[in-house]
């Protein structure tokens, strides 16, 4: 009986301690934060960190280690997918996303990386930054020169692929001009295609994005002159039937894929869903390489 009496306060004390420690600042110390990739945990506010911890403990890793992300960080430190996913979750929390929103974002990411079906896209080598047949990661972007979001995403992708040397990454372009941002979109696509015939596709395209505002027929010609293209040939090409057909063929391919808006990015034929800022694009490219190289 004495034992029992003595054990009750001890139990209550233990309970109180467990309740206090559950919400104490030390919460989350069991997570090896140093293994979280591409995210600054220290920049999270206490509320954001709270959401991140809950998400790391609730959301399962989708490749390699099959436990929750938090458990994978502890038990399978070699699992790079879990470390990247942890970083993604922390970044989402840093944006002030709720647990439900983070779950939805992770689901999108999972469907981007391991979709049910992969699209078969055949990029033209002349519209690529390298040889798509030899690259491990081929990024194909369907875009419009006038689309403001494309003007942000396409140069970012170009930069990200350029800094990853060794020919493992290639960026390919597909025309998907729309009239949503102005009538000159189709003309700009044809002009870029004409530049491609002179081997200066990406230079022309990036210059067009830089001068996107106020782009008109005259400016399209001026860009060709600035890039020291053979302007007479350029002018002839860009109104030619063959160039129009090339642009139309790209657009038809995009429509067949079900593309409704630009930019639409495919990484090795897998549709990229979710945020498309520089950090997420970079993370996605590296994760795809990880898969292609058989790592987890």
């Amino acid at each position: 009986m004495k034992m029992r009496h003595r054990s009750i306060p001890a139990f209550l004390l233990a309970l109180a301690v467990s309740i206090l420690t559950a919400e104490s600042p030390a919460w989350g110390q069991d997570i090896p934060w140093h293994r979280v990739m591409n995210a600054s945990v220290e920049k999270l506010t206490p509320d954001q960190k709270d959401v991140a911890i809950k998400a790391l403990r609730a959301i399962h890793n989708y490749y390699g280690c099959s436990r929750t992300v938090a458990e994978c960080l502890v038990k399978d430190p070699q699992c790079e997918t879990a470390r990247r996913l942890a970083g993604f979750i922390v970044r989402q929390a840093a944006f002030g996303r709720s647990l439900t929103e983070i779950r939805a974002a992770v689901m999108e990411r999972s469907r981007s990386v391991h979709p049910l079906s992969v699209q078969k896209i055949t990029p033209a080598p002349s519209a690529c930054t390298g040889d798509p047949a030899r690259a491990k990661v081929v990024v194909t972007v369907f875009a419009d020169v006038l689309c403001p979001f494309c003007a942000q995403v396409v140069p970012d992708l170009y930069k990200l692929v350029a800094v990853r040397s060794g020919g493992k990454f290639v960026l390919c372009w597909k025309h998907f001009p729309t009239t949503a941002h102005g009538e000159v979109g189709v003309k700009a696509a044809e002009a870029a295609q004409a530049a491609q015939l002179q081997g200066k596709f990406w230079e022309y395209l990036l210059a067009a994005y830089r001068n996107r505002k106020g782009l008109d027929e005259r400016r399209l010609s001026a860009l060709a002159r600035d890039l020291k293209l053979d302007v007479d040939r350029f002018e002839k090409d860009r109104v030619s039937r063959s160039v129009r057909r090339m642009v139309a063929a790209d657009k038809r391919e995009g429509l067949a894929l079900g593309i409704a808006g630009t930019p639409q990015v495919y990484v090795n034929g897998k549709e990229l869903l979710g945020r498309k800022d520089e950090v997420e694009l970079s993370d996605r490219l590296d994760e795809e390489l990880l898969i292609q190289e058989g790592r987890k």
Binding site: A58, H60, Y62, S66, M107, S110, H114
Partner: peptide
């Protein structure tokens, strides 16, 4: 089981 644990990606796989 994975479905019940909300580990939906692995469950589907």
């Amino acid at each position: 089981w994975q479905l019940e644990l909300d580990n939906v990606v692995w469950a589907a796989r």
